[in-house]
């Protein structure tokens, strides 16, 4: 079955993103396909390149990236929700005259239309929200 996840919880604040990650790993183990994870609302913080948790804690961004590297899962971030929360890739940082950026590949800034497209294409879209 083709799955997509909608993550709306910030890492380290709520369980939502952590549960989403475990769910992602479980469905892949069961032989399903996880097409994409879409980050919206406070979930966009999962994409922060600058995230620096203590070394003995799970690094959420890197774990999402491992999922992408191993299984080709796309990591899509709502651009409107991201920009107002300070999550900008190099291109957006330049456009807004910022001295730094905080979002990098394999995370991609994309529009809400992409979330609707995922909902249409996949057999299941599962929401994880606080």
């Amino acid at each position: 079955m083709h799955y997509a996840l909608l993550v709306m919880g910030a890492p380290y604040s709520h369980q939502a993103a952590h549960s989403a990650l475990r769910f992602a790993q479980a469905i892949i183990r069961k032989g399903h396909h996880l097409d994409a994870v879409f980050f919206y609302h406070d979930g966009v913080h999962n994409a922060s390149t600058l995230m620096s948790p203590p070394q003995d804690e799970l690094h959420m961004r890197n774990t999402w990236v491992e999922l992408h590297d191993a299984h080709g899962t796309r990591l899509e971030v709502c651009i409107a929700a991201a920009l107002r929360r300070g999550l900008l890739d190099a291109q957006e940082a330049k456009r807004h005259a910022k001295t730094a950026h905080s979002l990098e590949a394999p995370f991609e800034l994309t529009g809400l239309g992409q979330l609707l497209e995922l909902q249409r294409q996949c057999d299941r879209l599962i929401t994880f929200a606080p």
């Binding site: 609302h41 409107a80 529009g111 809400l112 239309g113 979330l115 609707l116």
Partner: peptide
């Protein structure tokens, strides 16, 4: 919170996409 606003945002996008 911004839940209502971001829920309405996607409603408008979906409608604009013809849903």
């Amino acid at each position: 919170s911004s839940w209502l606003r971001e829920g309405l945002d996607i409603s408008l996008v979906a409608a604009a996409f013809g849903q």
